[in-house]
Write a protein that binds this DNA or RNA. Sequence first.
DNA 1: CTTAATGCAAAGTATTTGCAGATTT
DNA 2: AAATCTGCAAATACTTTGCATTAAG
Lengths: 145, 145
Amino acid sequence: MNEIYYDILNKVKEKGYKLTPQRKAVVLAILDHDHMHLNTEEIYAIVKDQYPNIGLATVYRTLIVLDELNVITKMNFDDGCVRYEINSENHQHHHLICRNCGKVIEVMEDLLDDIEAMVEEKYQFKIIDHNLKIYGLCKNCLDNQ
Amino acid sequence: MNEIYYDILNKVKEKGYKLTPQRKAVVLAILDHDHMHLNTEEIYAIVKDQYPNIGLATVYRTLIVLDELNVITKMNFDDGCVRYEINSENHQHHHLICRNCGKVIEVMEDLLDDIEAMVEEKYQFKIIDHNLKIYGLCKNCLDNQ
DNA sequence: CTTAATGCAAAGTATTTGCAGATTT
DNA sequence: AAATCTGCAAATACTTTGCATTAAG
């Protein structure tokens, strides 16, 4: 965890961005709430706790920088806002989204090799990343019906 | 094509919605521009051509109805707006999105059976639909580098 | 004739931007 | 010291809503 944190700070510095306490606080907030798919307001609320006069615009701007540095990934769960995830390369995963309760479940298995091989060959498309969302009903909602 | 159109009108009627000329015009606009991933403004512009005093709000409201009836699907290509596609059940496809030029390419092969079977069994999740976006570089952008 | 749909304008959200002052390097 | 970053408020973009009027069934 600490290692990831310092890796991110280094990336920020390397690219010529300044290491401000606000930026550090945003990075920490995201790391501390991994797998929670926070949106900007939520990250802002967390950071504001320890850093009461940070502005929402600073959080927006920091997230743009982190996205540009490939540190985080934007996620869209169709709930009207952008949510963020840490980008740990060797940790590919997909999302199951319950159409009834909205819960998001992470699936750690990848299993997209076949389709990716086909795409690269047939479409001459150089794959960088992918994003798979599966919609349906979670166990809980199925049971309580 | 005509068959799909009347199927959609029937669905609208069946659910108790009124068949207004505005709704028909929106449906036609989408059908006439299939695979073009239009957003609301674009649909509005097309409809306005033949129906100059339609309001943007009517288009938004019609799209909400069509989405609810499962006639169209919302798509998010990370360009800041929601885009729509006709929902032809037996025509599953994925999208390749070029990180360089933004072009969206449709992939007609499905190839998600393995992963779906695994998800249904291991996560006890009843799958309704899925959405796969693959990011990378299209042939054109690779060639011109 | 009843009920729902439309068009307009106003109101909401989510996000971005301009700018003066503060902070990092 | 130079350049970037911050916080604030205003601006923008997309979408939804209230309401009086119109139109569909």
